[in-house]
Design a protein around this nucleic acid. Structure first.
Lengths: 218, 218
DNA sequence: TAGATTGTTAATCGATTAACAATC
DNA sequence: TAGATTGTTAATCGATTAACAATC
């Protein structure tokens, strides 16, 4: 039971969705085969990296031709678990929660947002992007009924951990955490934290470097 | 001019914002010193990793006591460039754009969202979270006037590259890209892509692994 | 056929972790 | 003082990149 929470090939997994985008658009263009070289050049990457990444999905390409597009799409979808539908709820129906509820793309990846929860009485009862908003204290009752597996957590920071507890208590075992809070969860609960601050940290540092090298270029 | 676009210490930079959160809350609790050990245990990390990460900011700790909280906050803020204010615009004033405009936290990190742009006539002229929405074709005129440096790109996928072109033409050199599109930009433009799909890919694969190990536990 | 592209094996690179003397 | 915590140096680990024979 070692490494229970360690996902190998993290970087490769994170790159697969970009490949899938490109491959899918070749697919709808009616192309039969796509080479790792072509995918790489589209993304400004090295071809060897694309080949290594695709290898983890189990797909086998043909020398000179590339990878069979239809099989490749299926292989990536399956590897990512995107060929299965998971019902999800949004907890915290603010702007971000609304935005995610409306993301058509997620539906193509098997993420089916079926309900949202909030404490604001003015929101409860209304519907955003086809998703009904329920009172937060009905989690226990509604989650088992609708069979939700995933909670998308978009409450304000101070409410993150209490909401998380309610979510776990309601029987959900996977949480996509958009708050800045490091959630304290019992063993067996899967959490992925989407950290916008760290994204801005990267942009900000890159900006500093760009300015510096622009000065050096003078 | 090698490595112009390579940021060293990427993983460390991405972890710094989490540390900053914890250190800031110690700061407001009036604590004078915080140890790497304490930060690590808060985040379920190894202390050595925290020490290594903090070292890149130039801060020096005191054996047995830890790091001086006030100096540490300043060191991280400065290293990340968060001690400077950058004016930003939102391009694409949908739900996600609105959500980001309202993020109070970003303001604390020097990100000042001063305008939004959209093509939808029903949105133009209105104000979200204090941010006025302008017509997209006024980018050229308004960006130089307000001195915006950063564009937060939250348009739907098909409009990503054309919007990006307009943004660059208007004189902006840093783009925070929330679309799924790999942007084609001229040299010297800094882009950070915030990729929600790759986040969901990670969650999804982790869910598969969790189910598998739950079965193995029987 | 000739040559583009594959999968594999090996080399390099960078990040994480370990070990430990220094020290407040 | 004793011991917790630091910064540094070395070891390990994992990811990326290079090299290349196999092949359609």
């Amino acid at each position: 039971m070692v490494n229970k929470n360690k996902v190998s090939f993290g970087p490769s997994i994170r790159r697969l969705p970009s490949y899938l985008n490109i491959i899918r658009s070749s697919q709808s263009a009616g192309v039969q085969f796509i080479s790792g070289t072509a995918i790489a050049s589209e993304l400004n990457q090295e071809p060897i990296q694309v080949r290594k990444d695709l290898a983890i999905t189990g797909i086998i390409g043909k020398p000179k031709k590339g990878y069979p597009v239809n099989e490749l799409v299926m292989a990536i979808d399956h590897f990512l678990g995107w060929d299965l539908v998971h019902k999800a709820i949004v907890v915290g129906a603010g702007n971000l929660g609304s935005a995610l509820s409306g993301y058509q793309e997620f539906k193509n990846h098997g993420l089916d947002i079926v309900a949202a929860f909030d404490t604001d009485p003015s929101k409860i009862g209304s519907v955003i992007h086809g998703v009904p908003i329920h009172p937060l204290d009905k989690l226990d009752e509604i989650v088992p009924r609708i069979g939700a597996e995933i909670a998308i957590l978009t409450v304000p920071f101070p409410f993150a951990n209490s909401s998380c507890e309610s979510i776990v208590k309601a029987g959900i075992s996977s949480i996509w955490n958009f708050t800045n809070s490091k959630l304290k969860v019992p063993e067996g609960i899967t959490v992925w934290r989407e950290d916008l601050s760290s994204g801005y940290a990267m942009l900000s540092v890159m900006m500093k470097l760009a300015q510096k090298s622009a000065v050096e270029d003078l």
